[in-house]
Write a protein that binds this DNA or RNA. Sequence first.
DNA 1: CATAGCTCCTGACCGC
DNA 2: TGCGGTCAGGAGCTAT
Length: 273
Amino acid sequence: MPELPEVEITRLSFADRIEGGRVTGVRVGKPLRWPLGCDAASLLAQTVGAARRRGKYLWLPLQHGGLLLHLGMSGSIAYHPEPALPPGGAHDHFDLQTTRGSLRLTDPRRFGAVVWSPAPDEGPAAKLLAGLGLEPFDTAFTGDYLHAALRRRRVAVKQALLAGDIVVGAGNIYACEALFRAGIDPRTRSDRLSRPRCERLAQAVREVLAQALSLGGSTLRDFRDAHGMAGRFQLQAGVYGREGQACGRCAGPVRRIVQGQRSTFFCAACQRR
DNA sequence: CATAGCTCCTGACCGC
DNA sequence: TGCGGTCAGGAGCTAT
């Protein structure tokens, strides 16, 4: 499912090419998580700006406002350089055609979203982006920061990472992988993590996301970038999706538990409370 | 305020 | 082969 690396790779795959294009057509398919929030025709003739990312959201600026995009868990965005877009399939729910190519959002499960907003810090976008935690590659995301934030929580550290209001970008896969890398038991109460362990964890989060980014994103589930290329992160997964298999570090069995209705994979020997 | 549970949706998978 | 049931999960929302 698209987490920060996948979303960033998606952004990089089309941002430069569509920037400066003028909107020539908009097609809205089945409803996504929220309504578009504007008349599709009102987007016509506007010039597209430089796409940005915040957490797992993308912001596509237009002359008057912009579009906030989210891939949910099964969404992907394809960039088509040709002027005309092929007919939309059953899961193609949003097209944006421009003079510099088109974007097509495909999302079988429709947890994704395309929402118009007058600005990223106004209207619906502001509401959705408010409360997001630090970007993992922000220099402010340090062990000290993580320690201070986790001290106020009693939930398991895995759930605190997933919540996205401390640090954004790590979804279920990368939260599991970061905790494995940091040697921390995902069940550990957030407020029981020492400062040094928070330092390790912050570093692990940065590293696992950076590595996934450099490898082109995860193919777990159905991620494809705008060129339809599959990522290769799954080849590196230490614990995610490996229940019962041997941990690569100690050869012990990888365990699967459920936390907050989500699967967590970890090695009980390598990851300590 | 922190937390738990619910919810949206459909492809994949499983047992019969 | 077909069919019903179950699961997966991002993240906002509601209730506690």
